[in-house]
Simulated scan of single mutants.
Amino acid sequence: MRTDSRLPRVLHALLHLEQAEEPLTSEQIGKMLNTNPSLVRRTMAGLREAGFVGSTRGHGGGWVLERPLNEITLADVYAALGSPELFSLGRSGDAPACLLERAANRATSAALDAARETFQAELERVTVADLVRPHAREIREHQEKRTGKVPEAGGQ
């Protein structure tokens, strides 16, 4: 079964955009996410429509954050991605007149609805900025080793 990894990948990109000192190109983001720049452009376009990112063309152009990450919940990003299906499970349609199949479909649907509600509630509770807080010290140390400089206060 193929999985949809757009949500964690987009969150990863947003976290890097927050740290970037200049716009990131689709090519840079694609390399970071090990994906095609055209896929990055299509995905980021949905985030732009939601008002999370902006883009500029030309030399020095690329993607930038338009809203602080502490104002964007995971539910917001999930919605901007089109709220992909959580599970590959679905209703059976083999024998629609069969009462037993209907009972099985009701039970399955109820469990899936409960799982979706729980997932949605968790996404609404967490902002993108919350994702780095438990690891702030490790991230800062990693950046210092990588760049040789100490990031500004508030940066992750």
Rank of each mutant, 00 (worst) to 15 (best):
residue 1 M to H: 10
residue 4 D to A: 03
residue 7 L to Q: 08
residue 10 V to G: 12
residue 12 H to W: 11
residue 15 L to N: 02
residue 15 L to R: 13
residue 16 H to S: 10
residue 19 Q to K: 09
residue 26 S to L: 07
residue 26 S to Q: 06
residue 26 S to G: 15
residue 27 E to P: 03
residue 30 G to M: 04
residue 33 L to H: 00
residue 33 L to K: 02
residue 35 T to D: 07
residue 36 N to Q: 09
residue 37 P to I: 00
residue 37 P to D: 02
residue 39 L to K: 05
residue 39 L to D: 03
residue 40 V to H: 06
residue 40 V to C: 10
residue 41 R to I: 07
residue 42 R to H: 09
residue 42 R to E: 12
residue 45 A to M: 08
residue 46 G to M: 03
residue 47 L to E: 05
residue 48 R to N: 06
residue 49 E to A: 15
residue 49 E to R: 15
residue 51 G to M: 02
residue 51 G to A: 04
residue 52 F to A: 05
residue 55 S to D: 06
residue 57 R to M: 11
residue 58 G to N: 07
residue 59 H to R: 15
residue 62 G to V: 03
residue 62 G to I: 03
residue 62 G to W: 05
residue 63 W to D: 04
residue 67 R to Y: 01
residue 68 P to E: 08
residue 71 E to R: 14
residue 72 I to D: 08
residue 75 A to C: 05
residue 75 A to S: 14
residue 76 D to S: 10
residue 78 Y to M: 07
residue 79 A to C: 04
residue 79 A to T: 12
residue 79 A to G: 10
residue 80 A to W: 03
residue 82 G to L: 05
residue 82 G to P: 12
residue 85 E to N: 10
residue 86 L to I: 14
residue 87 F to V: 14
residue 88 S to A: 12
residue 89 L to D: 14
residue 92 S to Q: 10
residue 93 G to F: 07
residue 93 G to R: 10
residue 93 G to L: 05
residue 94 D to T: 08
residue 94 D to I: 05
residue 95 A to H: 14
residue 97 A to Q: 11
residue 98 C to E: 11
residue 99 L to R: 14
residue 99 L to P: 11
residue 99 L to M: 08
residue 100 L to I: 14
residue 100 L to S: 11
residue 100 L to R: 14
residue 101 E to H: 10
residue 109 S to N: 04
residue 112 L to G: 04
residue 112 L to M: 15
residue 114 A to G: 08
residue 115 A to H: 09
residue 115 A to Q: 12
residue 115 A to N: 07
residue 119 F to T: 01
residue 121 A to S: 15
residue 123 L to H: 06
residue 123 L to I: 07
residue 125 R to V: 00
residue 127 T to S: 15
residue 128 V to Y: 02
residue 129 A to S: 02
residue 130 D to V: 00
residue 134 P to I: 00
residue 136 A to V: 09
residue 137 R to E: 15
residue 138 E to K: 13
residue 139 I to H: 06
residue 143 Q to Y: 13
residue 144 E to K: 14
residue 144 E to L: 12
residue 151 P to C: 08
residue 154 G to Y: 02
residue 154 G to N: 09
residue 155 G to Q: 12
